[in-house]
């Protein structure tokens, strides 16, 4: 789900680059020192998750875990995604350096949506609610990333519109898998470290 260099027009790359730089810089400046280890932890699993390959019909997909980053990091969710993407581009050549801004936005904004959804879920508590809302956060983050990716690619070339629905449907197994992983992770955190979730969602 990483856009390579040379795919998008310069205007989109520049605009998204400036937005990413601004958002990333502001968050980094405001982040408490105590939150940095958690940023590092989320960056590390986001960084490695891109190597877990899931066959998706005509294309090749991998885990994103942006939903999980969202529910653990809350307002700082953009930072692990940005740092993870930088390292993925430098070390694995996943996505391009010039496309870093647009990749960070297409994956970072859904992490905030996942955070919002999970936060909403914590106000409606019932048995199994951490799994249900964790699943919805993980599943929804992937689908939102796909929608944003397709919208951005459509600006580059209208021929991408034709395959949008195919790609959207083909990625459902990945979205469900991410939902399950995020749901189990939410249950696990709720039991062993509820403070992590409460800190972000109360």
């Amino acid at each position: 789900m990483h856009i390579s260099d040379g795919v998008l027009p310069a205007g989109i790359l520049a605009g998204s680059g400036v937005a990413t730089l601004g958002l990333g810089g502001a968050l980094l400046w405001r982040a408490d020192a105590q939150k940095i280890p958690r940023v590092a932890l989320c960056t590390s699993f986001f960084f490695v998750a891109s190597l877990v390959h899931v066959p998706m019909g005509p294309t090749s997909a991998h885990l994103l875990l942006t939903g999980l980053v969202g529910i653990i990091m809350g307002p700082l969710a953009f930072l692990p995604i940005l740092f993870g993407l930088i390292l993925q581009a430098l070390l694995f050549q996943h996505g391009g350096i010039t496309a870093l801004g647009v990749n960070a936005l297409t994956m970072g904004l859904p992490a905030y949506a996942a955070w919002g959804l999970f936060r909403l879920g914590r106000s409606v508590r019932f048995k199994g609610s951490p799994f249900v809302f964790g699943f919805l956060a993980g599943w929804g983050a992937v689908l939102l990333s796909l929608v944003l990716l397709k919208v951005v690619l459509t600006f580059a070339d209208e021929s991408f519109v034709g395959v949008a629905w195919v790609v959207f449907i083909a990625h459902q197994p990945l979205a469900v898998l991410e939902g399950i992983v995020t749901g189990f992770a939410a249950v696990f955190l709720e039991r062993v470290a509820p403070g992590v979730l409460e800190e972000q969602h109360e």
Binding site: S4, V52, H53, V54, H62, F92, F131, F184, A185, V192
Partner: peptide, 26 residues
């Protein structure tokens, strides 16, 4: 959900990652 189930899930994901990885196109 026990801790063991979570650990098994994590191990399965890591094993899948070790078997195959892909993203950039060559």
């Amino acid at each position: 959900m026990s801790k063991w189930a979570c650990l098994c899930l994590a191990a399965a994901l890591l094993a899948a990652g070790g078997e195959a990885y892909a993203h950039k196109m060559m």
